[in-house]
Amino acid sequence: MKSKHFRKRFLTTLLIIIILLIVFIELTPIIVVFMNSFKRDIDIWARGPFYFSFNFDSYKSVLSNRDFLLSLRNSIIVAVVSTVISIIVGAMASYGITRYVFRSKKLIAYSFLIFRMVPQISLVIPLFMMFNQFQLRDTLTGIILSHMSFNIPYVVWLLLPFFAAIPRDFEEAARIDGASEGGVFWRIFLPLVGPGIVVSAIFCFLMSWNEFLYALILSSTNARTAPVAVNGLLGQYAPKWGQLSAAGTIMLIPVLIITITLQKYIIKGLSAGGIKG
């Protein structure tokens, strides 16, 4: 009896050690970025990887780098605007698809789902040509539009089951009370799919914040976003790892905060349109 108890204790301890090891491995690269952000470039080159310092020089350089600050501002604008517009038009479309009966309903719903799977590299070439033509290259409008190409389908996709889950009685009741079509949508439905809106907002923001390819190809100096600017810190000959890590840490802060505090929503968002009931 006693040995069985012992065995169980031993297995639980072993399990916890394995889990901690996995967590440690997963977090090491993130921790290295964080630690290196407190070192100067020269210390990173000259001293071993385990040298530790607490020096704000890299942050000072990055935060006085006008190009980086501009790119950070651009990233925030692009992420916020593309998220807001995508959610408004996406929620409307999702509502229109689920709550009305019409012939092309299925076709439209499926199209939105499939639009989300378009590879960025396939889209960026024609977008580059079009943006040149319409003078949208290297403008925030252009980058916002390009990000909406993946955010709108995502919102529509994610919200379909949320809207579909609301019982018919709700809108019938509102209609009988004399609410207009728009009123039913804005005042009755939007609040009811609140959690869905939160999930889609988180994901649109993160996807836009993390996006690199469109920004790389469709912007040069004015509309450059932070991921492209961070990559620019690599330089031609001597990578500024300290500054790069400081900039990277700044970029990671909103991501880490969102991921940790809103974890419940995130799991929902990951499996959006995925797992059935």
Binding site: L27, P29, I30, L206, F212, P227, V228, M251, I260
Partner: peptide, 10 residues
């Protein structure tokens, strides 16, 4: 879950 959301560039 953190690594999943780390910016691909970073």
């Amino acid at each position: 879950l953190l690594p999943v959301f780390v910016l691909p560039v970073i």
